[in-house]
């Protein structure tokens, strides 16, 4: 038997997030799996019908602890100490990245971040994870228990099964709260969220400055989509970092992802490779983006994009 503690997260509606439902699918795929899901707050709604053995409710994350996760780590650590799982699964989210890493070193356990595959077919737990920005894949065997793993969003299809788990409430762990959040400053976003958009057009260093992003915005608006960017464009200050797509930015998976003046570095592709179709507009035909794209135009965006936008508008009219 392989016992798994899956630490789930909620979406904005308070339901179990799609990423966590993907983790449930990943956990269910392990042989002889016995799954316990930990959720913050009350185990109601979709949490109470997950296709797992047990759902344990742990305390809500307070606004002062969000991002630091001192209390959250203590709560999960207490649960790990009392249940001794073989595997602890998180999503590679802000929460999972911080709590997973802290938990691993607090309990002197193995940690593997941002994995795209987990298996125990050979007896011990093994994982696959992209490394070198996505230029390579690495397979690791985890010899010690528990194995603490964060999973990349999109690596598994979310489970569509339901079940009737037993529900419990766990005792809080004792935490030494030192750092705390005093204020949150979030930019109001109008229009569709980048992460949820079905159409994304992203601009890179090839745009040459901030002004061209207004053409990208026009295109996004015409198709009810959102504007993304490469890190080079964000670092240059042409657009806010909240638009960055990639390994250290946002992950998107729209139907169409148009990359304009973006070379297609592996770290950028890490955030958009699960798009249905990648479309490249780049003046350099040897650019890596053409190795990742389904459709492409080799050309100067200043000439290609206006007629593309005009035709899109005609088609939509």
């Amino acid at each position: 038997m392989t016992t798994i503690l899956l630490v789930a997260e909620r979406d904005q509606q308070g339901e179990i997030s799609q990423a966590s439902l993907q983790s449930v699918a990943a956990a269910s795929g392990l042989s002889d799996a016995q799954i316990t899901v930990a959720v913050t707050g009350e185990a109601s709604g979709s949490a109470s019908s997950l296709p797992v053995e047990k759902v344990v409710s742990i305390s809500e994350i307070s606004s002062g602890d969000s991002g630091i996760y001192e209390q959250a780590t203590a709560d999960v650590a207490a649960l790990v100490a009392s249940t001794n799982p073989d595997v602890v699964l998180f999503n590679k989210s802000d929460f999972g990245s911080v709590v997973g890493a802290r938990l691993a070193f607090r309990t002197d356990s193995a940690f593997a971040a941002d994995c795209t595959e987990i298996s125990n077919a050979s007896g011990s737990v093994s994982v696959t994870r992209p490394v070198y920005g996505g230029s390579a894949l690495a397979e690791f065997e985890i010899a010690s228990s528990p194995a603490i793993v964060t999973l990349r969003a999109g690596a598994y299809e979310p489970t569509s099964k339901t079940g009737s788990p037993s529900v419990e409430t766990a005792a809080a762990g004792s935490a030494d709260i030192r750092a705390s959040v005093t204020d949150t400053v979030a930019e109001a976003r109008d229009g569709v969220r980048l992460e949820d958009a079905n159409f994304v057009v992203s601009g890179g260093r090839g745009l040459g400055g901030p002004e061209p992003f207004s053409v990208l915005t026009d295109l996004a608006n015409a198709l009810g989509g959102a504007v993304g960017a490469s890190r080079a464009a964000c670092d240059a200050g042409w657009i806010d970092h909240s638009h960055q797509v990639g390994l250290t930015g946002k992950s998107v998976s729209p139907d169409v992802y148009v990359a304009v003046g973006i070379s297609g570095a592996s770290q950028h592709m890490a955030g958009c490779s699960s798009s249905r179709a990648i479309v490249a507009i780049n003046k350099d035909g040897d650019s890596n983006i053409f190795k990742e794209a389904r459709f492409g135009v080799v050309g100067d965006w200043e000439k290609v994009l206006p007629s593309f936008l005009a035709t899109v508008r005609e088609l939509k009219a």
């Binding site: 193995a110 940690f111 390579a136 894949l137 010899a143 990742e292 794209a293 492409g296 080799v298 000439k303």
Partner: peptide, 25 residues
């Protein structure tokens, strides 16, 4: 705690369809 078993460059068999008009526009 982690043993690296295999490190490799993933194969990509994506084939781009290049759209070529009379000019860039």
């Amino acid at each position: 705690k982690l043993e690296l078993k295999k490190l490799y460059v993933p194969e990509s068999n994506k084939q781009v369809e290049l759209i070529e008009g009379e000019d860039e526009a």
